[in-house]
Design a protein around this nucleic acid. Structure first.
Length: 550
DNA sequence: CGCATTTGACCAGCGC
DNA sequence: GCGCTGGTCAAATGCG
């Protein structure tokens, strides 16, 4: 049972098959197949993150190079150096490599090999000396490479941080333009986020929605207090706890019986949208044998119910990565197709997330923001939401559906239509740590021009093709990102499912999504029609990319 | 023993 | 008002 950031965060829920308790035994036996292996997994692609260093099946294993000597960000040289060194130590002649000076020595030796067979005495001594010399050179080179790698790693980390900060600044700026009164709240969030920038990417990217920042802050405070009450645990507090739960926005149930106001109620827009924000949900449909997708967060199961119309029980989970985190999720198998796992997220994390969790968090945050932005953009929420769904998946109406008729605004990301899903495939390495494969970037598919580190078995948002070509391509000028400029490589069918992780790991994803949404909403929204022309210039991510939803 | 899960009970909202 | 349903709680249980 592993408790760190990374893949094994959901260890116990994995082994606990809630379908086996009440569901049929048939499904139980089915889902018990390699649950660990078949978990959805989200990548850890944050450069320089701890997870990146935990690569296990790297070439360093084979060559017995100490891990600290082989950097996963390293270029080919250092690895070759390592191999050469080992081969040297084993008496093998090192092959010609990229190291010129090494080659020189080897070539000399090779050139003289014929002679060395003739006069053994002198040449063997010289060879020894030469070999030692080479070895020393290799050591020096290795050190130099390591230093260089470290430098590059630092730079990469720095660039990442800067990029995130810049993105947040941009969102903040646009948010302030749209809603100046929330400026101070936004600033609060910014300062909070800064605290965690170095180690962990912050989830609480500002909510660009009107009063979004306020909402986030409010939810955080409210939930901390309410949850503290809830966790106080003394029996005499039961009544108080119930009351507190009712007062807390998060405590509202998320079912059709919930107290949450409906979208098109007659309430003023502020209240209704605020409530809608609280209750906005993102439902992810994906194929998986595992009882729960691995989204990088830690969850604690707090309930299970048989839902009407579905023989499979519905499990209720609460985020336990931080005390008082209001995020909850429901996990349920689809009644029609029990290989489909439906995970519904609600709430905003009130804590920083590890990179592994950023993937799903970004996805759901983008979807939720998009949904809520759409619902607020106009009174005709349904229309805009449909447009937003098309914004996510312009060429497929079934990939993302937004329900405005539901008690809560819900966006459903349907990830089950992969032509060749890889969710049942074995991971390339047995370890549960998600390790990028910097050694073979050329073999990796790209989404939005970003190499896919295919460590994810998540079946994917399937945004790669449509979004990459039509949507993102359209938005590239709006959301400048170096990687977005790269030509998109045709996505491999069996790696499409990893697209989501890669997409959502890219901080530009939500910005790009927001830009796309903004342009659409701008056209549909009567009040923002004047902004339509601006969308191509200045809408870059402002309208959406709030990571305040999980 | 501590922690997570299980599971029955409770509560609130909705429909009839 | 009553029953149904969804969501949550918390004691009981299981596991490492």
């Amino acid at each position: 049972m592993e408790k760190g950031w990374g893949l094994a965060l959901e260890s116990d829920p994995l082994t606990t098959d809630f379908f086996s308790t009440k569901a049929t035994s048939a499904t139980g036996s089915f889902f018990r197949l390699n649950q660990q292996r078949d978990m959805f997994q989200f990548p850890v692609s944050l450069a320089g993150s701890r997870d990146d260093r935990r690569g296990t099946s790297s070439p360093s294993d084979d060559t017995r190079i100490p891990v600290d000597e082989v950097d996963f960000f390293s270029d080919k040289k250092s690895r070759i150096v390592g191999e050469d060194r080992v081969k040297k130590e084993h008496g093998e002649p090192a092959p010609s490599s990229d190291l010129d000076h090494v080659n020189t020595g080897l070539l000399l030796r090779t050139a003289g090999s014929d002679q060395s067979t003739v006069d053994d005495g002198v040449s063997s001594e010289m060879e020894d000396r030469r070999a030692k010399n080479e070895l020393a050179q290799l050591h020096v080179e290795l050190k130099r490479m390591n230093a260089e790698n470290q430098k590059l790693k630092d730079m990469l980390s720095h660039v990442n941080n800067n990029y995130t900060a810049l993105q947040m600044h941009l969102v903040t700026f646009m948010q302030q333009q749209r809603n100046p009164e929330t400026e101070h709240q936004v600033q609060e969030l910014k300062s909070e986020d800064k605290k965690h920038d170095e180690e962990i990417m912050p989830l609480k990217i500002l909510d660009p929605r009107p009063s979004g920042g306020a909402e986030t802050a409010e939810m955080m405070s409210t939930h901390s207090s309410s949850d503290e009450r809830t966790r106080s645990g003394t029996p005499q507090n039961n009544v108080e706890k119930r009351i507190g739960r009712e007062e807390s926005p998060e405590s509202e149930s998320w079912g059709p019986n919930s107290k949450a106001p409906k979208l098109n109620s007659g309430k003023p827009i502020d209240q209704s949208t605020e409530a809608a924000m609280r209750k906005a949900r993102v439902s992810v449909r994906a194929r998986s044998e595992a009882p729960m997708i691995t989204d990088g967060c830690q969850w604690r199961k707090y309930g299970q119910k048989m839902a009407k119309g579905n023989p499979c029980p519905r499990a209720y989970y609460r985020c336990t990565m931080a005390v008082g985190c209001p995020v909850r999720k429901q996990v349920q198998r689809c009644a029609d197709d029990r290989t489909i796992l439906i995970t519904t997220y609600e709430g905003n994390h009130n804590h920083p997330l590890p990179p592994a969790a950023m993937a799903m968090a970004s996805t759901t945050a983008a979807a939720a923001s998009m949904l809520l932005s759409g619902s607020m953009a106009s009174a005709d929420g349904i229309m805009n939401q449909n447009l937003l769904a098309k914004a996510i998946l312009p060429n497929s109406s079934t990939m993302a559906t937004i329900s405005a008729s539901a008690p809560f605004p819900t966006v459903t990301l349907d990830l089950t239509h992969s032509p060749n899903p890889l969710q049942f495939r074995s991971p390339p390495q047995p370890t549960q740590f998600q390790v990028p494969f910097p050694c073979q970037p050329q073999n990796l598919p790209q989404v939005f021009g970003q190499p896919l580190y295919n460590q994810s078995k998540f079946s994917g948002l399937q945004l790669s093709q449509e979004m990459g070509s039509s949507q993102l391509g359209h938005q590239q000028h709006q959301v400048p990102h170096p990687q977005l400029q790269q030509p998109q490589q045709p996505s491999l069918a069996d790696t499409v499912s990893a697209a989501t992780a890669a997409i959502t790991n890219d901080p530009s994803f939500t910005a790009a999504l927001a830009a796309a949404i903004t342009s659409i909403i701008g056209g549909a929204h009567p009040n923002s029609s004047s902004n339509t022309s601006n969308n191509n210039n200045s809408s870059n991510g402002n309208n959406n990319p709030s990571h305040n939803r999980q």
